[in-house]
Nucleic acid binder design. Structure first.
Lengths: 152, 152
DNA sequence: TATTGTTATACTCTATAACTATA
DNA sequence: TATAGTTATAGAGTATAACAATA
């Protein structure tokens, strides 16, 4: 099958590209029900982590320009989902923490995202889903160093 | 490992998102050696297919606005990589065909892309690479209908 | 002198609407 | 009347550079 189609169009790389952009659109749609963008959702995810992050750390992990992160943070702060606190140890840095309201929002948002992911991966059986995740993790682990594969 | 990281950040969906955007950057870099963008490369790929496509068909397959496709086509035509021909059966449509020079360019470009893909997938062994591609194909097949899984 | 966060500005990219020609 | 392609324009999104506060 698909013999008359250019091999590029069935390559892992091309499919990865298309899967990424399509899934991005899908979670944006799913998150619209809680009035969040994918980008805001990710900021909220990082803000809910164990250690508070500064804005510059956040921009590194998101792979976004600091000036863009700024706007996202402003929006989430206006909605009382996150809070800025000056770092006492270095008063230049502002630490981003999630609020109680932000946590409630995040709970609703992440269940919407999880549902969208389930639907997106529906063509795969359980074993294949697991294999896909493991393979993606193997590829991306060293590109997302803060996943912290082995530091105490 | 990674127990202190939010489950969202190790989910298949999130990894897919990051893999997609990072790989996009990687092929843009790789294609810079032949002075092409990822988008131009894909247009060239479709233009080199068995049947000539119109601009509107092209925009459907690329998932891009027709006005954007227009600009890409203009650029590739200026470089004599593709050629516009009026469809004799419907003189409103302009069919996009690849030229001989375009084919030479495509050959160089696709080997650059293939090398980038090999490097990107390097953490995976042969069996895992095959599994990844098969899983992505299973997910995307019905979302990329022109892959034509079974039409004569 | 370097860095964090911020603001203001310019630039690129994308989408919208209007137009021509074909059907 | 509807569609393919084109053009012009407006809008969103992004990056660049300059500034204030802190180190």
């Amino acid at each position: 099958m698909a013999d008359r189609v250019d091999p590029v169009l069935t390559s892992a790389g091309y499919l990865l590209l298309k899967a990424g952009t399509q899934f991005h659109g899908i979670i944006d749609d799913a998150l619209r029900t809680v009035d969040l963008t994918a980008r805001q959702f990710l900021v909220l995810t990082f803000a809910g982590g164990t250690e508070p992050l500064s804005q510059s750390e956040l921009s590194q992990r998101l792979g976004l320009d600091p000036t863009i992160v700024l706007g996202v943070i402003d929006g989430l702060e206006d909605r009382d989902a996150i809070r800025r606190t000056r770092d006492p140890a270095d008063r230049r840095r502002s630490l981003i923490e999630i609020t109680a309201a932000g946590r409630r929002l995040y709970t609703r948002a992440s269940s919407a995202v999880a549902a969208a992911e389930r639907e997106f991966l529906a063509p795969l059986g359980g074993a294949d889903r697991k294999a896909l995740r493991a393979n993606l993790l193997a590829i991306m682990e060293h590109r997302l160093p803060w996943l912290g594969s082995s530091d105490g």
